[in-house]
Amino acid sequence: MYFAENRISIVMYIHQRSQWPHFTWQDEQLSALLSDVRYVQGRLAGRMDMLGFSAQQEASFQTLTQDVLKTSEIEGEILPLDEVRSSIARRLNIDIGGLIPTDRSVDGVVDMLLDATQEYDKPLREDRLFGWQTALFPDGRSGSYTIQTSRWRSDDMGPMQVVSGPLGRERVHFEAPASERLVDEMTRFIDWFNTDQSLDPILKAAVAHLWFVTIHPFDDGNGRIARAIADMQLARAERSRFRYYSLSAQIRLDRKAYYTMLERTQRGSLDITDWLVWFLDCLRRALHQTETQLARVLVKAHFWSRFGDIPLNDRQRLLINKLWDGFDGKLTSSKWAKIAKCSQDTASRDIQDLIQKGMLIKDEAGGRSTSYSLSYQTDL
């Protein structure tokens, strides 16, 4: 996000149209896609309902982790995976072993997303939105910029513009409504979000995302908050605090198309059919991706149902969870020692103990260092 100097715009944005914010769309172009999304959504929910609580909690934990990581990556910010996992585990009282200290900026994104998805049934309020934005920027800075938090933005530095390109040759992608409109704009948006029950709840998530990010009420953090609002509405639609799919993870894969569609829609008419089609298709792909990933959660659940009663120390539990959740390269005793912050001898004893318990196996020779893998292999 950059603040560009004041300039005359020759583009009409949707918030400048006389009928704003009365969006329209072509139902016949959405009906088949919306039905498919509902079907896949229901099938996924049914599969998860058949699982035990621990598997449901594990799947939700993995999804929330992806949500936090990917909504930040969309904005170009890379958060440490271990810190994200530790922050979520602490707040949800999940035992993952080896919790580490977390940065305030990581905790802020986690707090925002957990408040949106775990407290979805509470009304969206001005002070709640202020709290989310303050959590994203706990020191009142975005990169090298000092920004305003706990209040709507002002236009003291000129109009709020989304721009790219080198200084002096910036390209303006979008210009938000003037700051003097924000109180009325946000009052209208919040009232609609909390009270309008006439709109299909999945379509409402798509409309809410576009509407909020078009108002662009904050100095920074608007995209992440817009996606949190969409997640909140999807949780309302499902009436569930468990999250089994990550819309932000799919948007991250389609980041360029996401920004292109937002820009095109904000420069178009109030017929937002194309945006709704794009959003629904993105959601459908997120749901299908989760069905693929669900097999891994099921295998992990079977693993712990078999070995859950075997006593493990914190180092062993930490490294086993890392193997399940995506380990970088092969596990060796030296990597174990480095991650678990222990001696090489201690790492070797931990590994041999797990081999004797049947939880690890030694890989076939294929390099200079002996490596190890989980022993439990099941094709579900």
Rank of each mutant, 00 (worst) to 15 (best):
V183S: 15
V213M: 05
A178P: 15
T195K: 15
A208R: 07
H216D: 07
D231G: 11
L210E: 09
R227M: 07
Q197H: 15
A178N: 10
I202W: 01
F218L: 08
N222D: 03
T214C: 06
A230R: 02
A206G: 15
I229Q: 04
S179I: 11
A228D: 00
Q197A: 15
D220Y: 06
H173D: 06
V172C: 11
I229W: 04
L234Q: 04
F189M: 14
Q233C: 10
I215T: 05
L182R: 11
D219G: 01
E175P: 03
T214N: 07
D196A: 10
W211L: 01
K204D: 10
P217G: 08
W211M: 08
E180R: 12
S246N: 06
A226K: 00
L203T: 02
D231T: 01
E238P: 00
F189L: 12
E180A: 14
W211Y: 15
R239M: 13
D220V: 09
H173W: 14
V207W: 00
A208Q: 05
E238Q: 14
A205C: 05
A230C: 10
F174C: 10
L234S: 04
M186Y: 10
E170I: 03
T214A: 05
G221H: 05
A205F: 00
F218T: 05
R224I: 06
A208D: 09
A206W: 02
P201K: 05
I202K: 06
E238G: 01
I229S: 02
